[in-house]
Design a protein around this nucleic acid. Structure first.
Lengths: 200, 200
DNA sequence: CCTACCGATCGGTAGG
DNA sequence: CCTACCGATCGGTAGG
């Protein structure tokens, strides 16, 4: 019986370290030997805790997908609230997931392509569902006259693209808190760049 | 003496095929043997045309960087034009580079991390210079009252993030031409999503 | 969790 | 452009 309980399970520790390495070097360029060294053990020992390298990637990608869906559901639970408010809350929820673990987010965004079938197809279906949910919210806002956009599809794409760029530059020790970042991003995306009407 | 000249050099053919594979599977997960097979030759034969796998990546990444800078320079050559016009032209130029070769663009955007030093650092410096150029344009527009944004840094980040998402969904055989896409993206980014003022 | 190891595959080269 | 090959490294397993 250990006198001090480990702060988190060995498995969770492997996931966490692997995620950081997948983010920095990419999934394919990260070897199980490097991962083991980083954790202070031998390569073979990893396999008493995990089944395969891809299993780690699978857990990270699908775990984050769950987080994104949960955030969106909470943000839009008050269906009677103004759409702009729901959209703002959905943006904030998305940013919160991205900033809570930006390494896992970067893996979610870029390394899913190394999932083998059928996981890869399942993952893309989830990602698509999420995108559709955002688009539907924007379309509802347009129908009610609260939002306007030349094209709802484009609006959803640019919105998510802008948010998903965050893990590329976010630093947990930066000047801005996640909530401040979320607020500024929402402000930027909702108001656009142009001050006055200009001819097209 | 061949009776029919090759349409492009073997080297350019290697670059092109490798770029498509780097995009689909990632640089590290693409083997020189698969590349050779795709080209209908043996792995060793590649090395009469190229020096190394990384050399291909280097050419793609730095070649595209040049294209982006050239496009931006042309778009902002008329320094006396309204900033909003220059910005719109810079957006269009950026989109034109992205759509002309979306495979190379995707590699430029995501695979540069596999460059070894010092190329990697040089590349990041170039990317940063480009970002700064966009930001400076936006700041100039704000100073002259043509543009408004809560934060010029955020504005530049969301702008480029939205544009750079394009290679992820652009299809050359889609309904929209590159110029139409550029126009809609510019419209979306300049005008924002909100119709009426709402309380913050 | 380690030691010792498996077969497979990697990027690249020599010599023709 | 091919044949034949190099040393290195890969993900993973057996047995303890």
């Amino acid at each position: 019986m250990p006198t001090v309980a480990p702060q988190r399970s060995r498995k969770a520790q492997i996931d966490r370290t692997a995620t950081a390495m997948f983010r920095a070097r990419g999934f394919a360029a990260t070897s199980m030997r490097e991962l083991a060294t980083e954790l202070g053990l031998e390569a073979g020992s990893l396999y008493s805790h995990i089944k395969s390298k891809e299993e780690i990637l699978h857990r990270v990608c699908f775990g984050l997908a769950e987080d994104f869906f949960a955030g969106f559901a909470a943000a839009t639970a008050q269906g009677s609230a103004p759409i702009a408010t729901q959209l703002r809350q959905a943006i904030e929820a998305h940013v919160r997931v991205l900033t809570r673990d930006s390494a896992a987010s970067a893996v979610f965004l870029h390394e899913w392509r190394h999932l083998s079938e059928p996981a890869r197809t399942e993952f893309l279906a989830l990602r698509d569902r999420y995108e559709v949910a955002f688009r539907a919210l924007i379309q509802r806002g347009m129908a009610q006259g609260e939002l306007h956009a030349p094209d709802a599809v484009f609006a959803a794409l640019t919105l998510l693209a802008s948010l998903n760029w965050l893990p590329a530059w976010y630093r947990p020790d930066g000047k801005l808190t996640p909530d401040e970042i979320a607020h500024r991003l929402a402000e930027q995306l909702l108001s656009g760049l142009r001050r006055t009407e200009e001819p097209v």
